[in-house]
Design a protein around this nucleic acid. Structure first.
Lengths: 143, 143
DNA sequence: GTAGCACTTGACCAAATGTTTAAGAATCAT
DNA sequence: ATGATTCTTAAACATTTGGTCAAGTGCTAC
């Protein structure tokens, strides 16, 4: 039953699709075991809103909550992220190849509607073959 | 302006949150340059529905469409996935460590305020999860 | 030109999402 | 007990999302 896996994957991506939730996760990475209200403090939204985000995150298996007295501490359970990375890595060879294709030639194009500015952003420092495993440069910025 | 990066990241995760869209991407991996209707054929939904999914995917920069005559071929542009993997890999050391913590001992039921947890211990490389990009450069204390 | 094929757009709809406010537990301190 | 603190639940609401059907736009072929 790999349908189940697909469901989990969907919930993981959906959970990480929201910026607030990503910031919650990032915050939880730096301060393990933070309580709900401490977690919520930097955010400009109400506590119930944060609560729902936490529900989504724990629904996706990305965090676990444990109650001690009246405070509830949260911690990361990043196993689902690993599955997400596994899924994404099936395309790894694909983006390597694409970079290969684009790198050597600056590509002058034919007359036609120029495709509107593909953001073509990060990561193409290298030229030919990908030194995949080294260095994402720049300080990791928890988004 | 890392706000922009965050936006792209959100769109990428959101795009991949839907099972139909994931299947579209997977299909596009195996058959590069498939036309819209060929892409849509295996799906039980209408063509306009598939169209909207393709809009979301290209809005996230995950595919590009190029029209030739009346048929439109799609191909992957998986660069955004790379950024997603980069984001997720910030948690990589985290899930390794979690395995470390769970392996030797079951949890404790300590009813006090758990001290801010400085264990920062061994990262056992026996874990199968170190597949790539094992270079975690120094302890990132970003912002 | 006329007909058909490939794709797109538009109007609409139901369900899910992200938020709020207000009110309800539980638990700790006095 | 009283009351504050911490978290949760409930109801309501606006927006977005995933889908439909119907009609429109271009290209290809006869």
């Amino acid at each position: 039953m790999f349908k189940n896996h697909d469901l989990r994957l969907g919930r993981t991506f959906a959970a990480l699709a929201d910026p607030t939730r990503r910031r919650l996760v990032a915050r939880l990475r730096e301060h393990e075991g933070l309580s709900v209200s401490e977690l919520a403090r930097p955010f400009p939204i109400s506590l119930p809103a944060v609560m729902k985000h936490l529900d989504v995150l724990s629904g996706a298996g990305l965090i676990s909550r444990s109650k001690a007295g009246r405070i509830v501490s949260c911690r990361l359970t990043p196993a689902p992220m690993e599955e997400a990375v596994d899924w994404l890595n099936r395309y790894h060879h694909f983006w390597s190849r694409q970079l290969d294709r684009l790198a050597p030639v600056v590509e002058e194009e034919d007359p036609g509607p120029p495709p509107p500015a593909q953001p073509r952003s990060s990561s193409r420092a290298g030229s030919k073959h990908l030194r995949r495993k080294s260095t994402r440069r720049g300080p990791p910025r928890p988004s």
